[in-house]
């Protein structure tokens, strides 16, 4: 064994904390985050032959973990997969936010000014509120939102991963953003 050969049994002690934090920053559930890290190590062990010494073990493990996180979102979205008709039928729709006759914002949903949002809330508080609001999204919307705006996959990649049509995808993104904005305002933004 050369000095550069990975030693899998040392991975949990060397990389466990970092990988776990990363996973937890994406899934907000400690049990799931732990499972993702464990799956990452086991997949890495299976693919040890493909490891190239020019990449660091840490980078390689993060690439595998990121793939596991995308798979996690895919399972989450597919387990609750709804078509466009069902999206229209369940949960808040455009009619909750806009007057159907003229498309104007309905009174209570009119966006309030967030001009002083950063000043009104501590950064940590803002992050915590946003996380709670994301957690309250329907699973499919949460998965699409996270894949697009946290993992920064393209619309095309997300449609492919989740088996969505682009029409469904845009409706889901739009609804997720509308609900997040409403949730953030309920929790203090725009009330300063």
């Amino acid at each position: 064994m050369t000095p550069d050969t990975p030693v899998p049994a040392t991975w949990p002690a060397r990389f466990g904390d970092e990988l776990y934090r990363f996973a937890l920053s994406r899934v907000s559930d400690s049990e799931t985050a732990e499972e993702l890290v464990q799956e990452t190590f086991l997949s890495a062990l299976d693919g040890l032959a493909t490891f190239r010494a020019e990449a660091s073990e840490r980078t390689w493990l993060f690439v595998i973990l990121r793939r596991k996180i995308i798979d996690h979102y895919r399972r989450q979205a597919r387990a609750t997969h709804v078509g466009l008709d069902e999206i229209e039928a369940g949960g808040p729709t455009e009619a909750d936010f806009f007057v159907p006759e003229n498309g104007h914002w309905t009174g209570p949903q009119t966006p309030a000014s967030w001009l002083r949002a950063d000043a009104a809330l501590e950064q940590q508080e803002l992050h915590d509120i946003l996380q709670r609001c994301q957690d309250r999204l329907p699973p499919q919307q949460e998965a699409v939102f996270a894949l697009r705006f946290v993992e920064e996959l393209s619309a095309e990649e997300i449609c492919q991963e989740l088996g969505l049509s682009s029409a469904n995808y845009w409706v889901i993104v739009h609804r997720a953003k509308l609900q997040l904005r409403r949730c953030l305002e309920k929790h203090g933004l725009g009330k300063n």
């Binding site: 776990y20 934090r21 920053s25």
Partner: peptide, 11 residues
């Protein structure tokens, strides 16, 4: 997400 990835709890 970035903030939580660097300052969250450990395993």
């Amino acid at each position: 997400a970035s903030a939580r990835a660097t300052a969250g709890p450990v395993l």
